[in-house]
């Protein structure tokens, strides 16, 4: 065997041994994350161990997230209102274009789905869309907070809490109901109540989507072997996708149902009563 072939053989053998050793180490139970996925999911839903004290009330961390997100959005809006909007020009720059696109998108969504009544709907969709999208992306920041028990945690998305999701679903349903009442009175109430499952489905759709994202992330993070490149994709990409998809789904559903219940009724033309002609006349 020549020297060259000997060297190749040694290198290949070393690489195989190193790969096998890495595999053995990574698959060792010692490197698994402490605690089961069950507990993590239970914590994510019930928040039994990570309550935060707010003016003496024990609240879920997502509520704090909600306040922080609201604060961030209002601060941003105030800065834009004071420094940017007065400088708006008819030929927009990139940032102005972005703002106009955001407002125009939700306003267009409201106008297209509910052509008869859409002023309030557009504003509501804009606020809800901003809250869901920015709130979901907010969890990427991982802002640390101290629980009532003194432990540390990173703030989750506001809608990862079932209470936040129920609020958003039920409020959307109330907005739809108000549109129905304002446009069609009792007929609108009837139309809205026909979709009685809507608040539940909207609430749990939001909550379920975020919870499922959390579940997938937790499953991935449970194993050390999967925690090298994958969390970047799972953590960031899934969160961005969630933010966009959930924003689109809730605003689109709200606009659709709002448009449906606020549509003015189409009056059918009254049928003219046929005048009975005596058989004697027809026979003649």
């Amino acid at each position: 065997m020549s020297k060259k072939r000997t060297a190749v053989f040694v290198i290949v053998t070393a690489v195989v041994i190193a790969a096998l050793a890495t595999g053995i180490i990574l698959t060792d139970g010692l490197y698994e994350k402490a605690g089961s996925v069950n507990e993590t999911m239970q914590d994510a839903v019930l928040h039994e161990g990570d309550k935060i004290s707010l003016f003496g009330m024990q609240v879920n961390p997502a509520l704090i997230s909600g306040f922080v997100v609201t604060g961030i959005l209002l601060l941003f809006a105030a800065i834009v209102r004071i420094f940017v909007i007065p400088k708006f020009s008819y030929i927009p720059n990139k940032f102005q274009l972005l703002l106009e696109q955001a407002v125009g998108m939700f306003e267009g969504l409201a106008r297209n789905n509910s052509p008869h009544r859409n002023n309030f709907l557009g504003a509501y969709l804009f606020a809800a869309g901003a809250y869901i999208c920015i709130g979901t992306l907010f969890e990427l920041l991982g802002i640390p907070w101290v629980t009532a028990a003194g432990a540390s945690l990173s703030l989750p998305a506001p809608l990862a809490d079932i209470n936040g999701a129920i609020m958003m679903g039920c409020l959307s349903y109330l907005v739809i109901l108000s549109g129905g009442i304002l446009s069609n009175g009792f007929r609108g109430v009837g139309r809205t109540l026909k979709e009685f499952s809507l608040p539940i489905s909207m609430s749990f759709r939001l909550f379920g989507a975020l919870l499922s994202g959390l579940l997938v992330t937790e499953l991935v993070y449970s194993y050390l072997a999967l925690s090298f490149v994958l969390p970047v994709i799972v953590g960031v990409l899934f969160t961005i996708l969630h933010a966009l998809i959930q924003t689109y789904v809730l605003t689109m559903l709200t606009a659709l149902f709002y448009g449906e219940v606020s549509e003015p009724p189409v009056l059918k033309p009254k049928k003219q009563k046929k005048i009975k002609v005596p058989s004697e006349v027809t026979s003649k």
Binding site: L63, A77, M167
Partner: peptide, 24 residues
Amino acid sequence: QILLHLLNFVILFAGLYLLLYKPV
């Protein structure tokens, strides 16, 4: 907590409407 979330969102809605949506 649902009411707290609702209060939070109502404040956000009013603020965004007055500061951003309406002027734009």
